[in-house]
Amino acid sequence: MNTDTASTNTAKASRFRFLIGLVIVAAAVGVLVARGAKDAMVYYISPTELAAKGRGADVSGLRVKGNVVPGTIERNELTLEFKMTDGVTVVPVVYSGIVPDTFAENGEVVVEGTLASQGSFEADFLMAKCPSKYEAEMEEGDVPTAESTGV
């Protein structure tokens, strides 16, 4: 029924409609993603970098990542105090709220909050690294040794 030219034209129009749709959706998603990428981005810093920022500095939107110093954990009702380190600098942390089950001595911990004037970090968010789903207690390639199994 259609002449060749007519069907080519419909095909072109169809492809054009498709492309316009693609561009509109891609642009909309792109704008949505870009709009918040800057605001929602949180930087990780080490305790050493935190100390270098100095007291009273604005550290909002920062996450400090380090390890829990053994023997420094003190719990009192809803307040948790401990010291965290990156192996160089030790920073005392005060946190109030639910402590994840995975929080433990030597464990990796991430805190978010502000650096108080007396040099301690007041955290309002605390995250402890989950144990691996794969390989519960050992790294890939570890083998049981007489020592680790108590033989």
Binding site: V29, L32, V33, R35, G36, A37, D39, A40, M41, V42, Y43, Y44, R63, K65
Partner: peptide, 14 residues
């Protein structure tokens, strides 16, 4: 060289 994190607020807003 900086470590960053994009959390739930980022994903939720789009």
């Amino acid at each position: 060289g900086k470590r960053i994190s994009l959390g739930p607020p980022f994903f939720n807003q789009f």
